[in-house]
Amino acid sequence: MSDPRNEWPLWEVFIRGQHGLSHRHVGSLHAADAEGALKNARDVYTRRNEGLSIWVVEAAQITASSPSDKGPLYEPAESKVYRHPTFFDIPDEVGAM
């Protein structure tokens, strides 16, 4: 059996493409350290011209919300319908707004 201490840690990879959008999560990989993760990300996730900028984050360093908090975290926003432009009726005569 291999020693689990020798398994390279998992990194999450985020890439910003050509079209000005934010960095987007594209997947994960293993690497011994951050520099290696960056290089591996370049080799694994940009083989088809996908990106111009790469972030890597060690997966263990990510704090994620828990599914059981779904109600308190996201449902309150559902009732704030006035935050969306479609809430307001603007007469056609006014033109584009």
């Binding site: 291999s2 201490r5 020798n6 390279w8 011994a32 350290d33 290696g36």
Partner: peptide
């Protein structure tokens, strides 16, 4: 190639 994976990890640990 186990030695390669171990070697890379050992180097990363030393750097840290």
């Amino acid at each position: 190639n186990a030695w390669v994976r171990e070697g890379m990890m050992a180097h990363a640990a030393k750097k840290r």
